[in-house]
Amino acid sequence: MDIFVQQILNGLVLGSIYALIALGYTMVYGIMGLINFAHGEVVMVGAMVTISVISALMGAGINLPGPLLVLIGLLIAIPSCMLLGFCIERVAYRPLRNAPRLAPLITAIGLSIVLQQVAILIWGRNYIPFPPILSHDTINILGATITKLQVVIIFLCLAIMAGLLVMVERTKLGRAMRATSQNPAVAGLMGVSVNKVISATFVIGSGLGAIAGVMVETNYDQAHYYMGFLIGLKAFTAAVLGGIGNLGGAVAGGILLGLIESLGAGYIGTLTGGFLGSNYQDIFAFMVLIIVLIFRPSGLLGEKVADRA
């Protein structure tokens, strides 16, 4: 029972981070119908920038409480990632908007290789430890433990997601986004500046990515130039699981995927009689992805999609 609760808690933490990144994928997909392969790299850049800022502040002898340092790091990382997202769209996607679907996918892959290599140039190939500035106090829930930091991560994710949903449903920009996703040409005729909406989507998604990057590195206490790849892929899986293009779906899919992964990793040993161990954790995401796409390509909450791709 303890293990079960523990895995549920771990899954929730993991899942809320996936959900935050999945929102970035799903927003872009909803509006432009393409997978922003470089989104994982935006997450990585957000994490790296934050670490650099914190290290620089600490190196300059500025002694501030840990959470405040992280907040300053975030305040610099978010605009950096937003700028990066804006540039990615400008360079890799906008010129190819009418090209065959393969073309933007390949520029995205190329761009994510470039971003990784630039990250190596700036931050090196090694794992960068997150400075030990945050407390790792734990709370006990039903015999399982969770750090306060993880509680903060979960609630922060939920708050951001709620905020995003309100923005999309209630604001003018949100309405423009929904219109563009339904039909860009007609949205244009109605006076929506489609290019601006698309830029805004990338900028917002990248900002969320930066926050997610910081959550990942505080949760695992390290960052790495390659960290964006796997987490990006899993978040994409989450977006597909929930129904790509659907914001609520991305949240549900992310949390579900986090739970599946941590429960799967926790119990796979028992289920297979010790044949497979928790080192297979990473295959769950891919298995889920394949199964969903076979049996319900539109995802849990999605409408029609798969044919558009």
């Binding site: 393969l102 892929l233 899986t237 295959i283 995401a285 394949i290 390509p297 798969a306 044919d307």
Partner: peptide, 18 residues
């Protein structure tokens, strides 16, 4: 993956490779 096309196919084959 017979029913899948384009980006979806790409992602599933990527997952398969992994």
């Amino acid at each position: 993956v017979l029913r899948l096309k384009g980006d979806y196919l790409a992602i599933v084959t990527l997952g398969f490779g992994e």
